[in-house]
Amino acid sequence: MKKQLLYSLCLLMLVAVPALAQMPHDAIYMPKKTICIAGMYGQSSWSQYWEGTLKRENFNIGTHTTRSLSVMPAIGISNRVNVILNLPYVWTSTSAGNLMGQEGFQDASAWLKIKALQYGGFSVNAIVGGSVPVSKYVPDFLPMSIGLQARTATGRLLLNYTHPSTGLYATAHGSYTWRSTIRIDRDAYQANERVYNTHEVSVPNMYDAAVRFGMLRRTWQTEVFAERMAALSGDDIRRNDMPFPTNNMQATQVGWYGKVQPRNIGLNARVAYVTSGRNAGQSTSYTVGVLFQLNVK
């Protein structure tokens, strides 16, 4: 046991291995018995948002900022089956007004990623995931809430073609996410042009879809992407009212992702910008992360 640990540590320090830090939305797999732990910091801000379809600003919020710090281990069960875990700590704040900023551990998520089919450079990947809230944060204090308190389950199909010699790739994926109902502190609320006399709130299910183009080499990766996520039902924020978990939130964003991992320690970075949306902020976001790869023999 001790020997194994020592061996792992040696690997960690000295040995250059192919760097393969990966996400629930790519076709990259950790080899069997390797773990990559990513520690990431993200920041996302908006000063304009869509109230329904109307784009507006709000002087009593100013600029709204969400910060997050997350730990995300990816574990190679086999060369074609990976498990990815994630736990973020989230802070919200505004530059104006009196609304109390919120912070706390948000939702823990787990993903199982399976390479179902491979034919040359082409692969079909099936991904299932789920998340559960891990603290009692307030879900209906939007836009300050750090999350919606819904449990989720996601099914995702991901297609990838990687050119074997150059590493140029194209990825397309689509997902469906089921979201549970939630309970709020209040015993009545207005949504869908009704007053519901209950604590229970329906959070609409959603889909997402994305295309990615990039190049994946042995020690680095660069990618541009376009992503779209949207609720499949839900209502709009009413004129000059606050958002609510029943809202039909939608956003389309474009961005760039890059990674450098010459050895078992690497860095990644991501920037994204929301180009259009509904019941959502027009946010600009960036994420930077440190990657840490170890082999478990």
Binding site: A126, V128, G155, T177, W178, Y196, V201, S202, P204, N205
Partner: peptide, 16 residues
């Protein structure tokens, strides 16, 4: 599993 999620998810929970 994917298929089940896909189909099962189509039903929004009803607030009782």
């Amino acid at each position: 599993v994917c298929l089940i999620l896909w189909l099962g998810g189509c039903k929004e929970p009803v607030i009782n």
